[in-house]
Write a protein that binds this DNA or RNA. Sequence first.
DNA 1: AATCCGGGGTA
DNA 2: TACCCAGGATT
Length: 210
Amino acid sequence: MFDPQRGFVDPLLSWYEQNGRHDLPWREPDRTPFEVLLAEIMLQRTTAEAVAGVFRPFAARYPTPAAAAAAPSDDIKGLVEPLGLVKRAAYVRQCAGQILSRHAGDVPREHSVLVDLHGVGEYTARSVLIHVHGLGVAAVDTNVRRLLSRFFDVTPEQSQIAVLADALAPSTRSSDFQHAMLDFAAEVCTADSPGCSSCPLRGPCATAEE
DNA sequence: AATCCGGGGTA
DNA sequence: TACCCAGGATT
């Protein structure tokens, strides 16, 4: 019987320790909850490499929800422009304002409250819960969906993948596990030409390319 | 359920 | 040229 712990979670975490993108600025241990939220919004449909190029000045300019809420909208827009999807400048400003007015400037800790923030959906809310609060769940993005649907040979339907991802997420290392899935999917289990020949995972994967 | 947003990188 | 990228809002 296939053991997802031995065949997937453990080797994935081992791969991550050796090969993960540990230098990304929003993964630094002293990151604030608002910095995590800022990063996740900038990362929506945007490569980590692109966000890495602008994140430090962005976070330095808007260290708190109060700073972001008070900024002229064109000001934030200028920092988002090189990434595309410029409407995210409005996400950041409105979201920061809501955190100020509704939550006294503290990033919420509950899923139902997080998803009520402008620009915060299922993925971003879960990311905050995982990386800030250590909740033992997973966040399904395009990388996770591709990786899990391939490896477990199931349809990429969102709700099924979400259940599977939560079941796999370790209760004590959910942040590492989430980053491991993202990095592995971005660097090995890529959308086209996945590196199957060097894949350290062993299991029911039906994807086979040399 | 579809459509739109978007610049940058890659094949 | 066409497709992809740590999605979410809008219709």
